[in-house]
Structure formats: structure tokens, C-alpha cells
Amino acid sequence: MSSDANLPIKKPEGEIKLETHDLSLYYDGFHALKNISVYIPARRITALIGPSGCGKSSFLRCFNRMNDLIQSARVTGEVLIDGANVYDRTTDVAALRKRVGMVFQTPNPFPMSIYDNVAYGPRLHGIRERSALDEVVEKSLRGAALWDEVKDTLRKSALDLSGGQQQRLSIARVLAVEPEVLLMDEPCSALDPTATFKIEELMIELMENYTIVIVTHNMYQASRVSQYTGFFLLGDLIEYGDTVQIFENPKDQRTDDYVRGRFG
């Protein structure tokens, strides 16, 4: 077991959806992500774990360029989706974010009806006909396992839903723009165990069609839902690999300490 140098990243088997090469992120002078290189497999769940402030959320936000919103943030290196660099000057950021959807830590429904929340994305992207919108809304709500609970109250305010329902609505809203990748930034941290369980079940269902990357504080969640896990510490990706291996047989002492709950 070594703990000085980071281990070389092994490329997972099968189709690769996302990859980074030598990715660094700076907030002004602060080096928040340090030369991260990683391969994220398609139609699998990849979990990013690590203590608060380790850079895992910042890393997640590189894939849909949400870090662009932070004025002091600067990125070097490459982030690839299907082999094309996300940070290329010619990238259409709005189109990228349509392909790479994001679910946030706290449910963030718009103060509109349930229906309008889900239809928001499709309307942005030019769908106008009523029947087409109805169809997308139903399909997305079904996909997020929320349809049965809200099908009779689609016109009601989304703010009347419970926290867990709001988070599934956020997922439905993302599904409605038909992304290829789902980024989930601690999607269950504001939810109770029952709602968390529902979201986890849903993620496993969604894995069939989507590449999912989830940031989580909860190591049990990571081990329950993911096939691959990356462990971050102070801006370094310490170890990345098969979830079972990371949790049962970590190669780095620091990973071992973290997954056994010795710090964090």
C-alpha cells in the first residue's frame, strides 16, 4: 500500500463516455483540482467521494462547464465527452448542458406548476405543440418515478411537493431535455432515508440509458449504487477504480482510512 504518489489511473473496460486529461482548476490563486486524469464509462454509475472541500463538486461541474459561472475559476487541461473537448473555444455551452444534465444538492424547482417545470427545457429547445409537450412531460415524470404521484395535479405549484418529490421533479426536468449524461451533486443530502432510497432505485434504473456521475458524502450510497468510484482528497484524485475494489481492497492508505471512516 503506497500513499505518496497517486496511482496510475486504469482505463475501465467498455465504452468511455467522459474523460479528463491533466485537468486543473484554479479559483484565483487556489489550486482546487490538481492534474486529474480519469475515464468514466458509459451507462454506468460512477461515484465521487471524499471529505468536504476536496474538489469533487468542482470536478463534477467541469463536465457541464457550470464553473464558468464563477468568475475566479480557471481551467487547464482537457475534459472530453465522446472524445470532443468540452473546453474547446468552439463549444456551444448551452448545447453541451443539454447533453450533460445536472441535478443539484438542494431540490430547485422553478416557482411554476409541475407541468411547466418539466416542460421548461423542451420549450427552450423549441418544442411548442401541446401534444408533444404533454408526451415529454409524461415520459419524463414516469422516468423519474413521479408520474403516479402527480398525474392528477400537474397544474399545481411544484413548490407544494415534498423534498423527495421535488428532487425527482428535478430529475424529470433534466430527463425532459434528453441528456446523455446525468451529473448528480449530492442529490440526496437534503432528503430523508425513504426519499433517498427512491432516488437510489431510480438511479439504477436510469443507468441503462444514461451515464451517471454522482458526488456523495455517503459512502454507503456510493457502494450501493455505483460500479466505479473515485476518491478525492485536497484536490487530488487519490484512487479511482472498481467500486468493490475501492471499498474492500483499496490500494492507497488514505483511501483505506477514508472508507473505513477514520477521517472525513
Binding site: A95, K98, Y120, G121, V174
Partner: peptide, 27 residues
């Protein structure tokens, strides 16, 4: 207008102007 509403809109592929028109200004 909370930042998370802007982020939600932008993350769905809205441009900044669409976000302003449909989320920020109405609220």
C-alpha cells in the same frame, strides 16, 4: 432571485438571456 434557480435554468441548456427572460425577470 435565488442563484439556484438561475443554475437550474442554465444547467438545462438555457442561454443567459433565456434564463433572464424566463426565470430571473418574472421572479
Amino acid at each position: 432571485v435565488p442563484r439556484r434557480l438561475r443554475e437550474a435554468s442554465l444547467a438545462l441548456g438555457a442561454t443567459r438571456w433565456q434564463t433572464i427572460r424566463k426565470v430571473v425577470l418574472p421572479n
